[in-house]
Simulated assay, not measured.
Amino acid sequence: MTGSTFGKIFKVTTWGESHGKALGVVIDGVPPGIAISSKDIQKELNRRKPGQSQISTSRKEKDIVEILSGVFDEKTTGAPISMVIWNQDADSSAYEYMKHIPRPGHADFAYDMKYGVGIRDYKGGGRSSARETVARVAAGAVAKLLLNRENIKIVGHVISIGDINAKEMNFENVSLNVEKTPVRCADIDAAHSMMQLIERVKEEGDSLGGKVEVLVKGIPAGLGEPVFDKLDADISKAMMSIGSVKGIEFGAGFNCISMKGSEMNDEITVQNGTIEMTTNNAGGILGGISTGMPIICRLAIKPTPSISKVQKSINSDKMEEAELFIRGRHDPTIPPRIVPVAEAMMALVLVDHLLLSGLITRHTTR
């Protein structure tokens, strides 16, 4: 199985399965001399871990990280950093009867077609499980430490669940309010409505999708390579690699199709000796290169495919139609827990491009 490594200089390789012994990540390309401790990683993992509220899965994982290599006296050495997170609350019993029945909306059928029936780890989804993202968040925590040194900040938040939409908010208000509710919506009134909707749909045995927005402040102009390695292209690949993400937009996004050029174009001005744009419909990226304006991207997240309603599928062992009732512990909606994952993927892309551009040196010890 290829495709578990991401990045050009800041390279991240994740490993492990949902119900295996552990999951982990190896990061190569981290400059030496960066102050780091397990607490820095743990802070981000605690935001992603399951079982935190009534709107997430009841699976209880402490997700305690162990740093195995690449750090000495709480500073990076420049060697690959390896981290492991042990599984402690995996319950595979609910998956036994689904061994030969691919779950609608999951990767089960596609994995069977690619690797052959009987190869796929059916326990918790194996490698295709959202639990794989714990390793991404650990890597993203390291990337965030590098970004903090450059005064670059990332914040994500939920801006819609089902048909409930949050009001538009700036970076500061999002940062202040996003962690105040389990749904991670910075609009507190909308967050309460979202939670009520999630509870109602959960009782019906169903699930909901939504939209996550990721904002980046302090990004310098000039990041991104023309043509195939555009900054927004790499961000798009990073975000679309997260399970359940079905769409992405930047700035005005899909609304641009109903705008005129005079409305879409961000006019350029000089304010106090600084070049700025009067609007940010481009979402901080033009021609695949950052403009210095905040990066704004939004992700469309599909409803959790594991639902408590009877669905039609097939039994691949008997080659006949089958009905499926999914047991186990699942999130009734995914966007709140995708927020730290999306932040992590954004951080990985930005650090990689900063290294590619030379704005962060591979040998800095400052």
Rank of each mutant, 00 (worst) to 15 (best):
T2L: 13
S4F: 11
F10C: 02
T13H: 06
T13K: 08
G16Y: 01
S18F: 01
S18L: 03
G20Y: 01
K21S: 09
K21T: 08
L23E: 03
V25P: 01
I27K: 02
G29V: 14
I36Y: 04
K43R: 12
K43C: 08
S58H: 01
S58M: 10
K62M: 05
D63R: 04
D63E: 12
D63T: 02
V65T: 07
F72M: 10
F72P: 02
E74M: 13
I81H: 00
V84I: 15
V84F: 00
I85P: 00
N87Y: 05
P104H: 08
M113N: 07
Y115P: 08
D121L: 01
K123Y: 08
E132P: 03
A138D: 01
V142W: 03
L145P: 08
L146N: 03
L146W: 03
L146R: 03
N148G: 05
I152H: 08
G162S: 12
N170K: 09
T181D: 01
C185H: 03
C185Y: 01
C185M: 11
R200I: 09
G205R: 11
G205Y: 08
G210A: 10
K211S: 09
V212N: 00
L215F: 03
L215M: 15
G222E: 10
F228Y: 15
K230Y: 06
D234H: 07
M239V: 13
S241P: 07
G247A: 14
A252T: 14
A252G: 13
N255G: 15
I257N: 12
S258A: 12
I268L: 15
V270I: 15
N272C: 09
T274V: 15
I275V: 15
T278N: 11
N280F: 07
M293Y: 02
C297Q: 11
I301H: 04
P305C: 11
S306R: 01
I314S: 05
N315A: 06
N315Y: 01
S316Y: 09
M319S: 12
F325H: 09
H330M: 12
D331M: 10
E343T: 09
L348Q: 10
H353C: 02
G358S: 09
I360L: 15
R362I: 10
R366P: 00
